[in-house]
Protein backbone atom coordinates (compact mmCIF):
# COMPACT_ATOMS: atom_id res chain seq x y z
CA UNK A 1 0.00 0.00 0.00
CA UNK A 2 1.84 3.15 -1.16
CA UNK A 3 1.21 6.77 -0.29
CA UNK A 4 -0.57 7.53 -3.59
CA UNK A 5 -3.11 4.77 -3.14
CA UNK A 6 -3.54 5.87 0.44
CA UNK A 7 -4.51 9.39 -0.65
CA UNK A 8 -6.80 8.19 -3.43
CA UNK A 9 -8.78 5.89 -1.13
CA UNK A 10 -8.55 8.02 1.97
CA UNK A 11 -11.74 7.35 3.88
CA UNK A 12 -14.00 10.23 4.84
CA UNK A 13 -14.18 8.81 8.32
CA UNK A 14 -10.91 9.02 10.21
CA UNK A 15 -9.73 6.10 12.29
CA UNK A 16 -8.68 6.72 15.87
CA UNK A 17 -4.93 7.43 15.85
CA UNK A 18 -2.67 5.34 18.08
CA UNK A 19 -1.67 6.84 21.41
CA UNK A 20 1.85 8.01 20.57
CA UNK A 21 3.52 8.96 23.84
CA UNK A 22 7.04 9.37 25.14
CA UNK A 23 7.57 5.61 25.33
CA UNK A 24 5.80 4.49 22.14
CA UNK A 25 7.14 7.25 19.88
CA UNK A 26 10.25 5.26 18.95
CA UNK A 27 8.10 2.27 17.94
CA UNK A 28 5.98 4.38 15.59
CA UNK A 29 9.00 6.31 14.26
CA UNK A 30 10.71 3.00 13.41
CA UNK A 31 7.57 1.64 11.73
CA UNK A 32 7.36 4.82 9.64
CA UNK A 33 10.81 3.84 8.33
CA UNK A 34 9.66 0.28 7.65
CA UNK A 35 11.32 -1.24 10.72
CA UNK A 36 9.48 -3.39 13.26
CA UNK A 37 10.89 -3.08 16.76
CA UNK A 38 10.11 -4.45 20.22
CA UNK A 39 11.19 -3.64 23.75
CA UNK A 40 13.94 -5.72 25.37
CA UNK A 41 14.57 -5.70 29.13
CA UNK A 42 18.23 -5.40 30.03
CA UNK A 43 17.57 -6.77 33.52
CA UNK A 44 15.64 -9.97 32.76
CA UNK A 45 15.87 -10.35 28.95
CA UNK A 46 12.08 -10.24 28.52
CA UNK A 47 10.84 -9.00 25.12
CA UNK A 48 7.47 -7.34 24.71
CA UNK A 49 4.95 -5.27 22.78
CA UNK A 50 3.00 -2.99 22.94
CA UNK A 51 5.18 -0.20 24.31
CA UNK A 52 5.20 0.32 28.07
CA UNK A 53 7.36 2.13 30.56
CA UNK A 54 8.30 -0.89 32.67
CA UNK A 55 9.03 -4.54 31.96
CA UNK A 56 5.83 -6.47 32.82
CA UNK A 57 7.95 -9.38 34.12
CA UNK A 58 10.53 -7.74 36.44
CA UNK A 59 8.92 -4.25 36.62
CA UNK A 60 12.23 -2.51 35.92
CA UNK A 61 12.46 0.45 33.52
CA UNK A 62 15.81 -0.52 32.01
CA UNK A 63 14.99 -1.47 28.43
CA UNK A 64 15.97 -0.81 24.82
CA UNK A 65 14.24 -1.04 21.44
CA UNK A 66 15.48 -3.94 19.30
CA UNK A 67 14.71 -4.55 15.66
CA UNK A 68 12.67 -7.70 15.03
CA UNK A 69 13.89 -10.42 12.66
CA UNK A 70 10.52 -10.19 10.91
CA UNK A 71 9.84 -13.89 11.45
CA UNK A 72 6.56 -14.72 13.15
CA UNK A 73 3.85 -17.36 13.47
CA UNK A 74 0.08 -17.09 13.24
CA UNK A 75 -1.66 -17.48 16.61
CA UNK A 76 -5.22 -16.78 15.39
CA UNK A 77 -7.23 -14.65 12.98
CA UNK A 78 -10.73 -13.43 12.21
CA UNK A 79 -12.38 -12.27 9.00
CA UNK A 80 -14.62 -9.21 9.21
CA UNK A 81 -17.69 -9.40 6.95
CA UNK A 82 -19.18 -6.41 8.71
CA UNK A 83 -17.57 -3.01 9.22
CA UNK A 84 -17.71 -1.51 12.71
CA UNK A 85 -16.16 1.69 11.38
CA UNK A 86 -17.04 3.45 8.10
CA UNK A 87 -13.37 3.45 7.08
CA UNK A 88 -13.53 -0.32 6.60
CA UNK A 89 -16.82 -0.56 4.67
CA UNK A 90 -15.12 -0.75 1.27
CA UNK A 91 -12.50 -3.25 2.42
CA UNK A 92 -14.82 -6.08 3.42
CA UNK A 93 -14.01 -8.83 3.89
CA UNK A 94 -10.75 -8.05 5.69
CA UNK A 95 -8.78 -10.01 8.27
CA UNK A 96 -7.24 -9.17 11.63
CA UNK A 97 -4.75 -11.57 13.20
CA UNK A 98 -2.71 -12.16 16.34
CA UNK A 99 0.88 -13.12 15.55
CA UNK A 100 3.83 -14.07 17.73
CA UNK A 101 7.22 -12.71 16.71
CA UNK A 102 10.15 -15.15 16.75
CA UNK A 103 11.51 -13.03 19.62
CA UNK A 104 8.36 -13.60 21.70
CA UNK A 105 6.14 -10.50 21.63
CA UNK A 106 2.59 -10.88 20.30
CA UNK A 107 0.72 -8.24 18.34
CA UNK A 108 -2.44 -7.44 16.39
CA UNK A 109 -1.91 -7.25 12.64
CA UNK A 110 -3.36 -8.02 9.20
CA UNK A 111 -2.22 -10.90 7.00
CA UNK A 112 -1.61 -10.03 3.36
CA UNK A 113 -3.51 -12.83 1.59
CA UNK A 114 -6.44 -13.04 -0.85
CA UNK A 115 -8.49 -15.64 1.02
CA UNK A 116 -7.85 -15.56 4.77
CA UNK A 117 -9.93 -18.71 5.28
CA UNK A 118 -6.97 -20.61 3.76
CA UNK A 119 -4.70 -19.65 6.67
CA UNK A 120 -3.65 -22.29 9.19
CA UNK A 121 -2.99 -21.89 12.93
CA UNK A 122 0.75 -21.59 13.77
CA UNK A 123 1.84 -21.15 10.14
CA UNK A 124 5.05 -19.17 9.63
CA UNK A 125 4.81 -15.54 8.55
CA UNK A 126 7.06 -12.69 7.47
CA UNK A 127 6.83 -8.98 8.33
CA UNK A 128 5.63 -6.61 5.60
CA UNK A 129 5.91 -2.86 6.24
CA UNK A 130 2.77 -0.93 5.36
CA UNK A 131 1.11 2.45 5.87
CA UNK A 132 -2.27 3.48 7.19
CA UNK A 133 -3.57 7.02 7.68
CA UNK A 134 -0.03 8.43 7.62
CA UNK A 135 1.32 5.93 10.18
CA UNK A 136 3.70 3.09 9.49
CA UNK A 137 2.12 -0.24 10.47
CA UNK A 138 3.26 -3.87 10.50
CA UNK A 139 1.48 -6.40 8.34
CA UNK A 140 2.58 -10.01 7.73
CA UNK A 141 2.42 -12.44 4.83
CA UNK A 142 2.74 -16.23 4.70
CA UNK A 143 6.43 -17.18 4.71
Amino acid sequence: MNATVQTATKPKATLPDPDINEVSKQYWDALAKGKLTFQHCRKCNNNWLPARGECPRCLEADWAWHEASGKAKLISWVVFHRAFHPAFEERLPYNVAVVELAEGPRMITNIVIDDAEKLVIDQPLTFVPAEEQGHGIARFKPA
Binding site: L15, P16, D17, P18, S76, W77, H85, N110
Partner: peptide, 20 residues
Protein backbone atom coordinates in the same frame (compact mmCIF):
# COMPACT_ATOMS: atom_id res chain seq x y z
CA UNK B 1 -4.38 0.97 20.00
CA UNK B 2 -5.10 -1.16 16.96
CA UNK B 3 -7.87 0.68 15.11
CA UNK B 4 -5.48 1.16 12.16
CA UNK B 5 -5.63 -2.63 11.63
CA UNK B 6 -9.43 -2.65 11.74
CA UNK B 7 -9.46 -4.23 15.21
CA UNK B 8 -12.97 -3.29 16.34
CA UNK B 9 -15.77 -4.73 18.48
CA UNK B 10 -16.00 -7.07 21.43
CA UNK B 11 -17.25 -9.95 19.32
CA UNK B 12 -14.07 -9.96 17.21
CA UNK B 13 -11.89 -10.72 20.22
CA UNK B 14 -14.12 -13.65 21.15
CA UNK B 15 -14.04 -14.81 17.51
CA UNK B 16 -10.23 -14.66 17.68
CA UNK B 17 -10.32 -17.00 20.69
CA UNK B 18 -12.83 -19.27 18.94
CA UNK B 19 -10.61 -19.64 15.85
CA UNK B 20 -7.63 -20.60 18.04
Amino acid sequence: DDALYGWFATLSSYAMIARR
